[in-house]
Write a protein that binds this DNA or RNA. Structure first.
Lengths: 345, 345
DNA sequence: TAGTAAATTTTACACACGTAAAAATGGGAG
DNA sequence: CTCCCATTTTTACGTGTGTAAAATTTACTA
């Protein structure tokens, strides 16, 4: 049974026997037309194939009901989790989410911003590329429409609404834990292109210094392509282990993906990191990447609250969209990390 | 320096001193206006802040230049890789990609389809939810606009353009390899909700039978929530290993995520799977999940060609969009898997 | 320098729907 | 049964841009 296809509301209105504006009102809220009319329209809609035109719908409306989300890349379950929570929250609030991935490319990120502006999205959530982002683009976006920064923030955008993890707290938490159960940890870092990575490195330094230990940071030089975190972790530690260094230390990795590489390096050298391990080697990460429970040994880490961050970002954005913020000071929301003790440390 | 914001092309045209349609033509192709005029417009654009309205732009155009992509869920690096390749290919071809994730929910998937139809996208690429998809929705989508199925296809949609992996070939490849180097493998499957999983299971059965061995399939019952593949793999094998079963067998897992769980189960029981391993235990997967090189031991698997699949899907879709297909028979493109020998088998 | 063909710019209408204001309708009270 | 008020429906115009056809300009030739 093929229903006749109807392209415009106009045609639909003659087909059903109601005026077009009445249909318009019905689609926006079925309650806004008389019950008998609503019923008539419903019946009519069942007999034909019609979908309203998205563009025409939004063209002359004050609000488009869309939220734009910019994500730096997809091949990372952290962003993927975050995005999931954002999309769900936005959907629940009745918004259509348009996600654009910048694929680690500032030009693509800029284009995404342009797209959002031209689409008149009600607001944007942006997870920046790190210091590869074109900050001018972010600034323009921010000055044009409701804007909330998520997960990571450029040093030049401190006066903007932000939702993320309190890295000082989270990194401090695991640093202290490691100090408690073994030798003070060294820090396996990353090339300094990522704001969060830098924040964690700094938090480690502060914490370990405060505890009276000497900080040791390794892995800040670029070894592999910078987005292959696991490869980076493995490569760096392979070098050290090969020279017999750090084989009996606690190693705090800047994030779980680096830690997964670290675990790999350890196993290559016949080392088994763990809490009560004989050698004293311990490896810990940060984020609670979904695969942590399944590594060998299972990775001890600090969990970021993806769920909470996503939800908070969306609700803050909606607040700004609705102009519900009383004052002008930027709202910074930082969520605590939670220790996830497993086997590796 | 704040540039004056200009909202419409009309305003822009008076600001620059050119007629509005001339601007329209300029934006669509700067070459289509006289050089001197183009220069004048360029200069004007540098002095003001203007972005054309996305909706108005597409409203009265035959082609919207957009491609809709539906993905079942994001928390899986396989889909993430595939999506990346699709987005890049589409972008290169000059299309704007709108991605909607169905988040394992048929209602969300249906809404995404609706959105695409109302946006008049030029075509859609859909990776279905498996047998949880609302097939009526897919059918409607397919009958309304250019449509290519990717990665997995419902048994009821065999007469549709499709791009994916040749699971018979890929699974056969690794099955034969395992038979060659050790005992004939058993197959660690999944609850039968996923078309690819079912195809691989069948391919295993056919291949192993053809080789004169008796097929053994485990893990078809639902143990954990069905999208936690790793947990499923671990739980199933834990049971068997605890009973001392299959500890000296080759185990072919339906995919790498399940295999990661399997590796975990092995290590829990003090088993070390591997090529020349003492016990005879071997574990292999399917997909070449990006983390395979970093598991302990590194996972032997069959690689799917994400790159090729994504590109082929996009270029086929564009072909259909441009009506370049000579005949009416659906075009099925299956890519071969490639053996990735690492340590685990 | 005038005339003509080609290229460019304008005019005018179309796109599909939102929405305020005007007209019509329905229901209830007297 | 009639009249009036509250809803609902309709009329009419707005949204920002695409595009075919008409008008103009440009470049070139004779």
């Amino acid at each position: 049974m093929k229903k006749p296809k109807i392209k415009t509301m106009e045609e639909l209105s003659v087909a059903i026997g109601v005026s077009r504006p009445t249909l318009s009102r019905y689609f926006q809220s079925p309650d806004s037309v008389r019950g008998s009319t609503a019923k008539k329209i419903q019946l009519g809609l069942e007999r034909v194939e019609y979908v309203p035109n998205f563009f025409a719908t939004r063209l002359n409306r004050k609000s488009t009901g869309m939220i734009g989300v910019i994500i730096p890349y997809l091949n990372d379950l952290f962003f993927t989790k975050l995005l999931e929570s954002i999309e769900m929250a936005a959907m629940d609030a009745g918004y259509t989410v348009i996600t654009q991935c910048s694929h680690s490319d500032r030009a693509i990120e800029a284009r995404a911003a342009e797209t959002f502006m031209s689409m008149n999205v009600d607001g944007t959530l942006v997870v920046p590329l790190g210091n590869r982002s074109d900050l001018v683009v972010h600034q323009r976006l921010q000055s044009r429409l409701p804007f909330v920064l998520v997960d990571s923030r450029p040093a030049t955008m401190l006066e903007v609404d932000f939702v993320g993890t309190d890295h000082k707290q989270s990194t401090g938490l695991i640093t202290k834990y490691l100090c408690r159960v073994g030798k003070p940890p060294i820090f396996l870092a990353m090339p300094r292109v990522n704001f969060n990575a830098m924040e964690r490195e700094k938090a480690y330094m502060d914490c370990i210094t405060a505890l009276g230990h000497k900080p040791v940071v390794i892995g800040t030089d670029l070894v592999e392509d910078q987005w292959y975190f696991e490869a980076h972790g493995e490569a760096v530690l392979n070098d050290f282990f090969a020279r017999g260094q750090f084989t009996d230390r606690s190693i705090l990795c800047v994030n779980d993906r680096v830690a997964i590489g670290a675990l790999r390096a350890a196993s290559r050298h016949g080392l088994v990191p763990g809490r009560g391990a004989k050698g004293g080697l311990r490896i810990a990460g940060h984020d609670d990447y979904p695969l942590c429970p399944f590594t060998t040994p299972a990775l001890t880490t600090v969990a970021q609250d993806f769920e909470a961050i996503g939800k908070a970002a969306v609700s803050r954005l909606i607040e700004v969209i609705n102009n519900e913020d009383t004052d002008d000071t930027p709202r910074i929301q930082l969520f605590d990390g939670v220790l996830k003790l497993r086997e590796s440390a």
